[in-house]
Amino acid sequence: MTNDDDILVGLGFRRSIADETIQMKGSSPNFVEIAPENWMGMGGYWRSKLHEAAERFPITAHGLSLSIGSPDELDFEFVKELKKFLDEFNIDIYSEHLSYSKCDNAHIYDLLPIPFREDAVKHISKRIKTVQDILERPLILENVSYYTPVAAKMREEEFISSIVKESGCNLLLDVNNVYVNAFNHDYNAKDFIKNLPLDQVAYMHMAGHEKVEKDLIIDTHGQPIIDPVYDLFNYTLDLTEPVPVLLERDFNFPEMEELQGEMTNLKKIMNQKWNKAYVVDE
């Protein structure tokens, strides 16, 4: 039976709210998530803040620069440095984006969509295995938001499922990204989720977004989670086993009480759906 220990809600550990997060009172996160590239190779003030965070919270990592979908060769030195960093902070959960952010030997510093194609499935699956071997951890890949398909020869959910099956990696299900993509590309979000390899979901993200055009949403992480995304989260939890869930907020930070309120909302839904002990008999 699921118990309270399995209901884990985390918060993105960002510099703008570092002190508030470390000193948070009341309902505080069960863990914090960092982007390792924002802390790797860095000492001094921010390193000390990261250590303070690590003393209070378990840490998960959500990478930015692995560029698993890149046509370029993997940056092995980077992956080795990453492993050292993950080891130092006892980070077991390391996730990345199913996208690419480096190409033709140039970093782009943002996430570009991969063509949904069979050759990309094989290419990425092979790279996932290599990365997992070096890191000695499972790689958890996130379904990313994207604003245009690129030379697709298969459906997105087929692409994701094929990679998960071929590589054996885990899935970070970003529920907000599913909502964003369903809106932007006019598909049914619930059907999309139903067709994912849900038994491989190891982690989830929830976030806000911004509608910039009448038919386009940008995944900004700068707004509160909206009700339709909560609804989709509710739906998703009926189909999945308990996993840690992260509230992502990257800028436009509100008072901490607002973020705590969002974490409480998530936890309430998770308890209702996943924690059988939470159900009280009449």
Partner: peptide
């Protein structure tokens, strides 16, 4: 062509 993996660098 930027080479730094860590954007802060």
């Amino acid at each position: 062509k930027c080479q730094e993996n860590e954007v802060w660098k």
